[in-house]
Amino acid sequence: MSTTIAPQSGGSKERVRQDKSQLNWRQRRGQWDVKYSPYLYIAPFFIVFGVAGLFPIIYTAFISLQDWDLVRNSGEYIGFGQYNWVLHDREFWIALRNTFSIFLLSAIPQLVAATVIAAMLDQNLRARTLWRMGVLLPYVVAPVAVSLIFSNMFGDKFGLINTLLSDIGIDPILWHTDIIPSHIAIATMVNFRWTGYNALILLAAMQAIPRDLYEAAAIDGAKTVRRFFSVTIPQIRPTMIFVIITATIGGLQIFDEPRMYDQTGTGGANKQWLTITMYLYNIGWGKFNFGRAAAVAWLLFLIIIAITLMNNYLTRRFVSGEDAVKKSKKTSLKLTAKGGK
């Protein structure tokens, strides 16, 4: 399943661009309505971003080149010294390793499960609302409760899981000592919280698929599974891309779960589960080196962009446009194109 998801995720921008509709009527409204109102519609985002988002980004970029004193809000320009230091720090690379490991352990099972759950919820269920709202419940639980539950489960000595294991004669797992178990535990926390969330996003997309596509496929003799791959997945591609990109960005910035994983929040005695954002936070708020922390923030930003682009490239390569649905899409696009020009 995982292989079917990744390939689906690209090509989006192309399609989005094509879809950006061909509205050039000039009859009643002035040309400006067509030409300028889109800018008006996206303006609120950029205004809010300008007030609340832009300054922090510029600030971070600026101080990453400085030996920065947070309290005095001043610093000394040192070029790329902070970046240099970070790239030569062993902990940075450990954190990078952990981040990718936790990311893969969480993102892949999570997206597969979310897609399957969404497909199940997309059926003609009795008491639909109950099931749908049910999967979102983990997202509603207050963070303090989540962290308490999981630290109760994954305690090395008195944790629920190890107690159960020892009841059936299996050696306890050292959740807070060994690297892979700690990553699995953290990935479990992440998946618990976000699977239902992503399932509902995908469900919304599935709900928007015209039902006659399924009818047509059924008439052609396609079975449930086949319909899922030939109709559902291609149809929800834009949303799938959205889910993959946000899961990638969120996954690589993973912070809350590993930080809640033990009482110190510093990633373990041997940095077993130190992630990049925790590393960043520890340098900033722990060691009070905000210039260096800002350099980490920018390195992480670049890594995320690189991964996202790579994702996009891979998906494009794997996307084949050979199914019936896509053909029908193309026809409609042609039609609209004609109408538009």
Partner: peptide
């Protein structure tokens, strides 16, 4: 989309 990729851990001070 790129704005989402900016880590927020330091944002609290400038904000």
């Amino acid at each position: 989309i790129a704005t989402m990729a900016v880590p927020v851990q330091l944002g609290v001070v400038p904000l």
